[in-house]
Amino acid sequence: KTVHVDGVEYRFNNPEEADKFVKRLVKEKNGNVEVRGDTYHVE
């Protein structure tokens, strides 16, 4: 899984860790998540 945040790319081998990371980011930023294939885009 890959997570894109503000143009920075984070790669996770463990999908659960990627999910936790995304949830935390969305809370912090009050942002939205767009999923494209295996990539999460957080804005």
Rank of each mutant, 00 (worst) to 15 (best):
D6F: 06
G31V: 15
E43W: 15
Y40R: 03
V42H: 05
R11S: 08
L25P: 03
N13F: 07
H41Y: 15
R36L: 11
H4A: 05
V5K: 01
E34Q: 09
V33R: 02
F21W: 03
Y10C: 08
Y40N: 05
G37A: 05
V33F: 10
E34T: 14
D6A: 04
E16I: 05
K29A: 10
E9C: 15
A18F: 07
E43S: 14
V35P: 03
T2M: 05
H4R: 11
Y40D: 10
V22E: 05
F21V: 02
H4E: 10
E43A: 12
E9N: 02
V22S: 02
A18S: 01
L25V: 09
H4D: 02
V33G: 05
G7I: 00
V5T: 00
G31Q: 07
P15M: 08
A18D: 01
E16K: 04
N30Y: 11
F12H: 02
V22F: 07
Y10Q: 01
T2G: 01
Y40P: 06
R36Q: 08
R11Q: 08
N32Q: 12
K1Y: 15
A18N: 00
V35Q: 07
V26D: 10
K29G: 13
V33S: 06
E9D: 06
R24F: 11
F12A: 01
F12R: 00
R11L: 06
R36A: 07
G37F: 12
Y40F: 11
A18Y: 10
L25R: 00
K23V: 08
V22M: 09
V3F: 02
R24I: 11
F12E: 01
N30H: 10
D6L: 02
D38Y: 03
E9M: 09
K1V: 15
V42F: 12
E28F: 06
N30E: 09
G37M: 06
H41G: 06
H4P: 00
E16A: 08
V8R: 06
E9S: 07
T2Q: 02
K1M: 14
V42K: 06
F21C: 00
H4Y: 15
K29F: 14
N32E: 06
D6G: 07
G31C: 15
H4I: 15
G37I: 12
V5E: 00
V26G: 04
L25Q: 04
N30V: 08
D19V: 08
K23Y: 03
K27I: 10
F21G: 02
G31L: 10
V3Y: 03
F12I: 01
G31E: 07
E9A: 07
Y40G: 05
E17I: 01
N30D: 10
E17S: 02
V42L: 06
E9F: 07
D6M: 05
N14S: 14
V3G: 01
R36D: 11
K29I: 11
G7F: 00
D38C: 08
V22Y: 08
E9R: 05
P15I: 11
Y40L: 12
D6Q: 04
G37R: 05
N13L: 08
N14E: 03
E9K: 04
E28K: 05
K29H: 14
P15K: 12
E28A: 04
V5Q: 00
K27C: 15
N14P: 00
H4S: 12
K20H: 11
E17D: 11
Y40M: 08
F21A: 02
K29P: 05
V33Y: 08
Y40H: 06
F12T: 00
K20G: 07
D19A: 11
H41C: 13
V33W: 09
E9W: 10
P15H: 10
T39K: 07
V5H: 06
R36F: 11
V5G: 01
K23R: 07
Y40E: 08
K20M: 13
A18K: 03
V8A: 02
R24N: 13
K29S: 14
G37V: 13
Y10H: 03
V42M: 07
H4G: 02
E17T: 03
E17F: 00
K29Y: 14
G37N: 07
K27H: 09
D6R: 01
N14V: 02
E17R: 00
H4W: 15
N13S: 13
R24G: 13
K1S: 12
G37D: 10
E17W: 01
H41P: 09
N30R: 07
V5S: 01
E16N: 04
K27G: 10
N14G: 02
K27R: 07
Y10R: 00
D38M: 02
N13K: 09
H41Q: 10
G37S: 06
T39Q: 11
Y10T: 01
V22H: 03
N14F: 04
R24D: 15
K1W: 15
E34V: 13
G7N: 03
P15T: 10
E16H: 05
G7K: 00
V3M: 02
G31S: 09
E43V: 14
V5W: 11
A18Q: 02
T2N: 04
V33T: 04
D38L: 03
V35E: 06
T2F: 08
E28L: 08
E34C: 15
V22K: 04
N13G: 06
V3H: 01
F12Q: 01
V8M: 06
H4Q: 08
F12K: 01
P15Q: 14
D6H: 05
R24Q: 14
K29T: 12
T2A: 04
R36S: 11
A18E: 03
P15Y: 09
D19Y: 13
K1Q: 08
Y10S: 00
Y10N: 00
P15S: 12
T2H: 04
E34K: 08
K1T: 14
D6I: 01
V22N: 06
F21P: 01
V5D: 01
V42A: 07
L25A: 05
N13P: 11
V33P: 04
T2P: 02
N30A: 07
V8F: 03
R36M: 10
T39M: 07
K23T: 08
E34A: 08
V8K: 11
V26T: 08
H41R: 05
F21H: 02
A18T: 01
V8L: 07
V42P: 05
T2S: 07
K20L: 12
